[in-house]
Every structure is written in C-alpha cells, then in structure tokens.
Design a protein around this nucleic acid. Structure first.
Lengths: 223, 223
DNA sequence: GTCTATAGGAAGATAGAC
DNA sequence: GTCTATCTTCCTATAGAC
C-alpha cells in the first residue's frame, strides 16, 4: 500500500489521473491565472511530477483549454438542469414584458434559480475563478476564441432556453461577473473586518453567505 | 533632432518619462495581465530599454502598483466630477426609495451619468483592463490589498456621494464588471460577425457603441 | 537620464529509465 | 503510467559605461 511519503504515485488509470490534474489545475489557474500558474505548482497540487502533467496534456496551453472546457461544461449543465426543473414545474409560459419589472435586476423565478445554480458552483473551488481568468484572455489566439464561444453559448442559453430578453440576459450576466470579481478580489475574506466589504458581500451573496465564507476561508488557509 | 531609428531615446524629465512608462505599462498589463506582461514588452511600447523601466520603478511589482494607482485615481476623478456636476445642476435631493424602480438596473439620473463616465474611460486604452486584471489578484500579498482598497473606495463613493442604496451600488458595479468582462473577452471585435455577440454588445454599450468599436479595432490592429 | 551587457534564476518541455 | 535529469528559453534585475 502507498504511504504519504511515497515518491512514486499510485498507478491509476489515465482517465482518472486526467481528472485529478484538471481539478488541481482549475484551482491553481483560478488562483494565479494562466501565466502566473506553473505546471510545477499544478503537479504538486495533484501529487505527481511536473513532466507528467505536461506529458498528459501535451503542454500548458492545452491543459488550460481542458480546464476551461470542463468549467464551461459544468456551468452549462448546472444551468440546463435548473431550466429543465423550472419548466417541469410549470414555468409561466411567457412573461408579459411590461409587467416584468422587479426591484433588483428583473428576471423572475427562473432568474432566481439560475442565480442560485451559479452561486452553488463556488463549491467547485477554482471553477468560477478559472472562468474569470479565461474571460480576461480574449486577445490570446487559442484561449480567446474558446472563452468567447463559451460566454456566448451561455448568453444564447439565457435568451432561448430561459426566455430572457436581451436586457434581462445582460443584467443576469452582469450579476455573475460582479460575483466573479468579488471572488477574485477575495472580498469575502474581509467580511466582518470592513464595513463596506461586509455590506457588499452580504448584499451580493445573501442566499449563500455561509457557503461563500467557508470556501473563501479554506482557500485563505492553504495560501 | 531625434529620428525614428535613434537607439538612444531623447533625454526627457523623469516625471514625463515616468508617465510614458505608466501609459505603456497600462496597455500591456491590460492586454496580458501582471504575469503575462514582460518588462521588455512595456519598454518596447514606451520606446526605451528594459533595464530603464525596471530602474525607474524599482521592479515589476512596483510598476504594476503604479499602474493600478493611476487607474483608480482616474476612475475616482471621473466619478467625482460626474457627481459634482450632477449636484451642481440640482439633483433630486433624495429619491423616494419606493418609486426608484426603473426597468433596467434601477439608479436614476446619477446612475446614467456615472455609467457614461465609466464607459468614457475606455478611451484610455488599458485603464479598465488593468483594473480588471488587478481585481483578479486578490490573493497577491501586495497587489491584492490595493485592489480591494480601490474597489471598496468606489463602493463607498457610490453609497455616500451618489446616494446609492446597497442594492443600487451592487447593481451599478455589476454592470461595470460585465463591461470589463466584455472588453477582456474582446467581444466588441465580434460585432457584426456573430448574432449573439452583436446583440449583447449593442445592448451593453448602446450609448457609446462607436467609441467601443473604434478602440477595440485599434487594439486588434496592433496585436 | 539612458544604454549595453550579463548575471542569475525560473519555467516549460524533452529524453529516457523503470 | 510515472519518475529523474536536464536542455533551452525567457525574464527580471544588477553592474557599470556614457
């Protein structure tokens, strides 16, 4: 059996190893970005050697694309499920545009469900942060295209499946991008330490405050 | 007089040179992020040698902090001016909270003015993108703190000077973060090429479409 | 104030053994 | 499937001349 001090990792199927690496990479890329992250940090996080990481994915860029693809897939799945469930429970067929004016952010019940599904993704440490990192790389020849595609796929899903108007979709995405930004800033770590930070975090994460603070704390402890 | 092919740059006051470097750095950091940008790229962009960039700021990190500070200053100035002008023209002393429910995003006239001031900052190529990059570096011991401070300063300004409620401030910031994200994704470059991209860009930048497309195009041409 | 030369140190990738 | 050793490239920072 393998002990913690073994230098050579247990021999496991490559598919499984691949997934481990993607998870580790998601966290490290999320923390430090594409350029800031090193394949060595990712390897250590995954408990294997640096060359193995590179060999498995054929290079750092491919690995990042893998992480991005995985993150987008999970996000799409989460949204698709939320929409399916909403429809199954009998969604208001079509909202009268004129009456669809709610105080903060418009979009009704489906908006609330999608928002919750989004916040729940924080549990997958690194997912939203990796996405955010990718979304700042539009200029990159390889990554930029994938990032735009993914973002637009989400937009189309909101428009056609969730029935959002362009305004509603924009507003919903905006909330998501703010959430990403607060995570990127590590503002949840300031909760209780700074009045403005506390108010803003509370106001943004109301529904899931506990989750956010726990996850944020974990990350702080490891760094 | 100096010709374009001169190897040695014109001798100019250090304050002026400093500003040139900050401008160049703002663009490069905005494009590639803190880790992705190299001091050499910045030097080339500024038309001077790499060691001079380092010497002038004492290191890459200090340079980034300089860029961040400059960006935040300009943003604060723009907002402060917009608020001052709004107040001078006789702002509705205090909005009745119950009636302050507008279709897309709440916040009334002052929100529109601040939003316009924000979009206008796109003209300073690199400013918003550098900010966005900084906002994803909360984990960095040096930069993270400055970034959080800056973000919270904006938040406090919105709350106390512009009279926003927490909800309004959050909603306003969210719109800003979406705008940053679209710029980071280079989505304006897709305008007219993809239906979803066109719709979203149009919907987000309505007031300033022309400006956005021009600036975005410029960047594309240089890359 | 500005440069050239270069030291010193990562970091990504490859070769090859087990 | 996984590692050790190492090549090569690139980058920040320093030294020192003009």
């Amino acid at each position: 059996m393998s002990s913690v001090t073994d230098k050579i990792s247990e021999r496991i199927p490559s598919a499984e190893r691949r997934e481990q690496i993607l998870e580790a990479a998601s966290r490290v890329f999320g923390e430090r970005g594409y350029f800031g992250a090193t394949t060595d940090q990712i390897a250590k996080e995954a408990g294997i050697s640096q060359p193995y990481v590179v060999r498995m994915f054929g290079g750092k860029e491919n690995l990042f694309v893998g992480v991005l693809t995985r993150s987008l897939d999970r996000l799409l799945v989460a949204f698709t499920e939320a929409i399916a469930q909403w429809k199954a429970e009998g969604s208001p067929a079509a909202v009268d545009p004129a009456s669809d004016v709610t105080p903060s952010g418009a979009h009704g019940e489906i908006g609330r469900r999608l928002g919750l599904a989004y916040v729940n993704l924080i549990e997958d440490r690194g997912l939203l942060l990796s996405l955010m990192q990718a979304f700042s790389m539009g200029q990159d020849p390889t990554i930029g295209g994938k990032a735009r595609d993914g973002f637009l796929t989400i937009y189309r899903l909101l428009r056609s499946e969730a029935g959002f108007t362009p305004e509603e979709a924009r507003s919903f995405l905006a909330e998501g991008m703010l959430l990403n930004t607060l995570l990127g800033l590590r503002l949840p770590d300031e909760y209780g330490k700074d009045d403005a930070a506390t108010e803003l975090v509370e106001c943004t994460f109301r529904t899931k405050l506990q989750l956010v603070l726990e996850v944020s704390g974990d990350e702080g402890a490891r760094a």
